[in-house]
Design a protein around this nucleic acid. Structure first.
Lengths: 224, 224
DNA sequence: GTCTATAAACAGATAGAC
DNA sequence: GTCTATCTGTTTATAGAC
């Protein structure tokens, strides 16, 4: 991705996407007027129709931006650890556990302590509940590949089958807390007496979730 | 609550609340027109202004209905198990663990397998991200009391301090998966190849989450 | 490419008959 | 209480000057 110029048509485009991401995510698509977006982006109302064809075109452009950015972040996190060492089963198992811990920690830091981490899930959530076309692209391009990779790691770490129903559900249960801390942030922060998530809060949450994940990975098998 | 009549002003009122709950939750407040609500409720457009004063008045009435209903459901779940037996520490600890398991299971069945369980969180989530006044009532009336009770049970079950920062965060992490299975249902269902949540799916999810919670409750203490 | 001005549709709220 | 008809404001999209 080339650096964006600080002025010119591409800067207007980027500015509209950023404002739209923030406003659509916090107020909702219909609740946000194009005048408001243009105002916050310091652009003209007509520029939305010019650059994206329509208000809905802007929505699609935002979804594409999210998909591209998240693929970059996640591929980076996996590349760091996803190649498991050759060797005996216990060695591979411990490596897989460490890899899961790394990915969870990277996801926690992105979701809780980066600016985009706060904006992306809110936008995605709205697209998901509205069953919009933008969500299909996000699911296939980001969500499913990540979940499959985590299932493979979980299988390595515990010896179960990667694509079994139980494994897929368990992986959802393991990433659930992380996403909930982001999605339910207003409730969490009120209960914790926090005014927002900073690096310190992100670290505490990451530690809490890591302990939970570790407990499940170390759980003795039982047919409950 | 008296049974609603099938006709008359109270039936119109209830019908408008139900349609508003469904439409506000799925499309968002601003995206839903009063004409659409009235149409689905088989009522007249002007009846919204008559019964609730305004579109925003209907929003508040829905929030009140949710708060009252959820208080009933949750108080019932806690009443069943919340009184811990007198006795030695191990006995109380096991009772507390059983109580947590019961509450988690009741919450899972309500969230995943009841009609309201699908509608309430969607509406609440929108009110939360829009920082509306309706959310304040839901937080104070439902969310915080439930979280505090779970913290107290967790403290009994593990011996930690109930209101410590770590305990509060851990309880969020434990209920996170449950809420995520509901909030992220479209993504979960697509990955699982399910067309929706029925009793069988709710049971599988409840089992998965229960195993995770049990793993954390049985975790050996370590200073990680 | 960016702007102003405007068109055409739609929103929520209300007045008044019944 | 419920209806029809209408008022008033706002929305998105577009036409055309620059």
């Amino acid at each position: 991705m080339p650096d964006e110029p600080v002025t010119g048509p591409e800067a207007t485009r980027q500015s509209l996407i950023e404002s739209g991401l923030r406003l659509f995510g916090s107020k909702g698509f219909s609740a946000t007027s194009t005048r408001e977006i243009a105002g916050e982006a310091k652009a003209n109302v007509a520029s939305i129709a010019y650059h994206f064809g329509s208000k809905d075109g802007l929505r699609k452009a935002i979804a594409d931006t999210i998909a591209a950015t998240m693929r970059g972040v996640i591929d980076g996190a996996f590349a760091e650890r996803f190649v498991l060492p050759e060797g005996d089963a216990p060695t591979r198992r411990e490596a897989a556990k460490a890899a899961i811990a790394t990915v969870i920690d990277r996801m926690a830091r992105f979701l809780l302590a980066s600016p985009m981490g706060a904006l992306f899930p809110r936008f995605i959530l709205r697209e998901m509940t509205e069953q919009s076309a933008a969500f299909d692209a996000l699911y296939g391009g980001v969500f499913e590949p990540v979940h499959k990779k985590l299932c493979a790691l979980f299988a390595e770490a515990t010896g179960v089958e990667a694509e079994s129903e139980e494994t897929r559900l368990t992986v959802f249960a393991l990433i659930g807390p992380l996403l909930y801390f982001r999605i339910g942030a207003p409730a969490v922060q009120r209960r914790m007496g926090w005014t927002g998530y900073g690096p310190a809060e992100a670290r505490k949450i990451s530690t809490t979730v890591s302990r939970l994940v570790a407990a499940r990975l170390d759980q003795k098998d039982k047919t409950s």
